[in-house]
């Protein structure tokens, strides 16, 4: 019982985790190949009205990001100084910023930046974490020990501190921000995946597979990875929102994405505070955009977790 609770702690913020075997076995059954992806989705929709709402937000964001060029014909980086700080109205639906750039356009293109950073960090971070975690559990011994000590070290840093230090080293910019956010994600995911994988490692058929002479890669890919998909997906979805928030914070500190790129955190930084009173729309829309996006991803992530983790399913 406690095991699953502590895994939950990991999802939220940090990780110091041991997951009990009971939970893993249940997940093991639960995620046997018989459960189809569509089945999971329909289960989620029925059981998770909030989660479905989150999914709607996420889909809307993805839509904005993908079809930005179609949704708006304006260049998000184009200055129109004669229209600087225009209030929302017919001409500019959400108003303009201090360079006369259309805020609606910048919000739409900002979704692209946010999703790009969010997905890249979450996918790379959790995938590398998956590989490390499973390998660490499978090989054990010295390899496991070293990996775990490294994971200990990185997880001892608060996220923002480590990210800031990495950005200071590499310099600001989208690519470097992605690296800075991804690095702290890897050990978080590795730790959770490892504790689940450890239990699977103990199951006799893995030994049987080894006895049959299957290669390590095959055993890991065919037998271990599919069985830790649940914690992996939980981590991945929780990273999405975190990455977007972290990118916004870094940009706000001037260490993130740089002008003239359209990015929500940057929009809050570049003068939004100075103009927040006389032109409140400059500070309001990007803030709402960030909140809504993270809100959506969190609702969605919760639903994914509840669906995948039988312990948390309602009675």
């Amino acid at each position: 019982m406690r095991g699953s609770i502590r895994a939950f702690v990991t999802v939220e913020d940090t990780g110091m985790v041991t997951v009990s075997e009971i939970q893993v076995e249940e997940q093991f059954e639960d995620l046997s190949p018989k459960t189809t992806f569509m089945g999971m989705i329909s289960l989620m929709l029925r059981k998770q009205p909030l989660g479905s709402f989150g999914a709607v937000i996420v889909i809307a964001m993805v839509f904005m990001a993908v079809f930005a060029e179609i949704l708006t014909s304006i260049d998000p980086e184009d200055n129109n100084l004669e229209y600087m700080l225009t209030a929302p109205g017919e001409m500019f639906f959400l108003g303009t910023d201090q360079f006369g750039r259309d805020l609606l356009t910048r919000i739409i293109y900002g979704a692209r930046t946010a999703l790009f950073v969010g997905f890249t960090c979450a996918i790379i971070g959790s995938s590398l974490g998956l590989v490390l975690g499973v390998a660490s559990a499978y090989f054990g011994g010295m390899f496991d020990l070293i990996i775990q000590r490294v994971v200990d070290v990185i997880m001892a840093f608060p996220l923002i501190i480590l990210a800031l230090a990495v950005v200071a080293t590499l310099g600001p910019g989208v690519e470097n921000v992605i690296i800075a956010i991804t690095i702290p994600f890897i050990p978080q995911c590795a730790r959770v995946v490892r504790s689940n994988a450890l239990a699977i490692r103990e199951i006799p058929y893995i030994d049987a597979a080894r006895a049959l002479g299957f290669s390590h890669v095959r055993i890991i890919m065919r037998h271990m990875v599919p069985n830790v998909m649940a914690p992996f997906l939980i981590m991945l979805t929780s990273f999405l929102g975190q990455a977007i928030l972290l990118e916004a914070s870094l940009s706000y500190l001037g260490m993130g994405v740089q002008e003239p790129t359209a990015a929500w955190g940057l929009m809050l930084q570049g003068g939004a505070e100075e103009y927040a009173e006389s032109a409140p729309w400059v500070a309001v829309w990007p803030g709402i955009a960030i909140s809504l996006a993270v809100f959506g991803f969190n609702l969605f992530g919760d639903a994914v977790r509840d669906t995948l983790d039988p312990k948390l399913r309602s009675q």
Binding site: E77, D78, N79, L81, F99, P172, G254, E259, G270
Partner: peptide
């Protein structure tokens, strides 16, 4: 240079 006033403002303008 990572200073708002006036570096980043002028920079954004010059780029445009």
């Amino acid at each position: 240079r990572g200073v708002d006033q006036p570096y980043k403002i002028v920079g954004t303008w010059m780029i445009d």
